[in-house]
Design a protein around this nucleic acid. Structure first.
Ligand SMILES: [Zn+2]
Length: 324
DNA sequence: CGGGTTTGACCAGCGC
DNA sequence: GCGCTGGTCAAACCCG
């Protein structure tokens, strides 16, 4: 079993497939999804297709829950920690990803974050315990893919793996191999939807990607669609842009109020390593649109109806809670 | 040989 | 005070 996993993970060739756009393919277990991930699918090294932005999660273990909940429920769902239903997962063909950014704006997480980082810091530098490092914003991406080895263009070194409480799937901890880059990333699978990989990025890369998208592994169609605004590097357009914004905009006080949610609506998608110029570029045209500011509730585009649908809901929820 | 992964152990906060 | 959990380190191991 492990071997299998290993191989799968290391094999970045698989990935999601591209299927017809289903407005409602909410059933992750439905054969549709599985169908896509057939053998021939793996040959298509797809990476990120569309991303939904979600708020961050208060509990590390309930990331999916939160996301799913938010996304799924049009209105604030009950607090029950149970995973109600996955609802309409990203209706994406290959791999849909939901991006949730939790800058420190997350009041709830604030504490947790601090603790987390603190511990980490302590371990690293027991000398200074009072020092509170700047907690970097965390961005979670839900990607629908059978492989967790999603290439984002950066080189990661795995430094740990732990079993997740609510999930049969373990969580892997990665760190950017760049010299002075402290960006961390954790990858875990949704317990309910093994096809969904949740990648949480912590920190921002201050260096160019070691793996240039356009010439690195093989040729990705580059950011044909990213030209909308984030044509900088490749993978994480939003990372560069939004990230910065977030960090800078982040209020010094970890209080409540995270108006940045709408911002994340952007889709970092990035690139497909596919040698083909464009397997299905038209699949996610809207996803590429970079919209720094999305009206909370206005349906900016029915294309991403799904995304938008969920976005507003979560935002509302958030705001509601916050205001409360 | 270098780089990366694996795996167990350790630590620190939190809840009870 | 104890136990739990998440997060990290670090040695061992693996692979090109
Ligand atoms: Zn980096």
């Amino acid at each position: 079993m492990e071997e299998k996993q290993k191989e799968s993970t290391q094999e970045r060739d698989n990935s999601a497939e591209k299927i017809a756009f289903s407005d409602q393919m909410m059933i992750p277990e439905s054969s549709s999804l599985l169908d896509l991930s057939t053998d021939h699918h793996r040959k298509n090294p797809f990476r990120f297709i569309d991303m939904l932005s979600v708020q961050d999660f208060a509990n590390p273990s309930s990331i999916f829950d939160d996301l799913l909940h938010n996304v799924a429920a049009p209105f604030p769902p009950p607090p029950p920690p149970e995973y109600s239903e996955v609802v309409n997962t990203p209706a994406t063909p290959n791999s849909s990803s939901v991006s949730s950014s939790s800058a420190e704006a997350a009041a709830n997480d604030d504490q947790k974050e601090e603790q987390d980082q603190e511990k980490a810091r302590k371990q690293l530098k027991p000398k200074k315990k009072n020092q509170k490092r700047p907690r970097e914003p965390r961005f979670a991406f839900m990607t629908k893919s059978e492989i967790d080895n999603l290439d984002d263009g950066y080189r990661w070194r795995k430094y740990g793996q732990k079993a997740v409480k609510n999930s049969p799937f373990p969580r892997s901890y990665y760190r950017c191999t760049s010299t002075a880059c402290g960006v961390k990333k954790r990858v875990e699978r949704s317990c309910e939807d093994p096809t969904i990989v949740v990648t949480t990025y912590e920190g921002t890369h201050l260096h160019p990607c070691p793996l240039t998208p356009r010439g690195s592994f093989g040729g990705m169609p580059e950011r044909l669609m990213l030209e909308g605004g984030g044509g900088s590097s490749s993978f994480p357009p939003m990372f560069h842009h939004h990230h910065h914004l977030y960090q800078q905009q982040l209020p010094p006080q970890p209080m409540q109020h995270q108006p940045y949610f709408h911002n994340l609506l952007t889709s970092p998608l990035s690139f497909n390593p596919n040698p083909n110029p464009n397997p299905n570029p038209t699949l996610y045209p809207n996803l590429f649109q970079e919209r720094p500011f999305c009206p909370p509730v206005s349906a900016s585009a029915r294309d991403d109806g799904l995304l938008q649908d969920m976005l507003p809901s979560q935002m509302f929820k958030q705001q509601k809670e916050e205001e409360d």
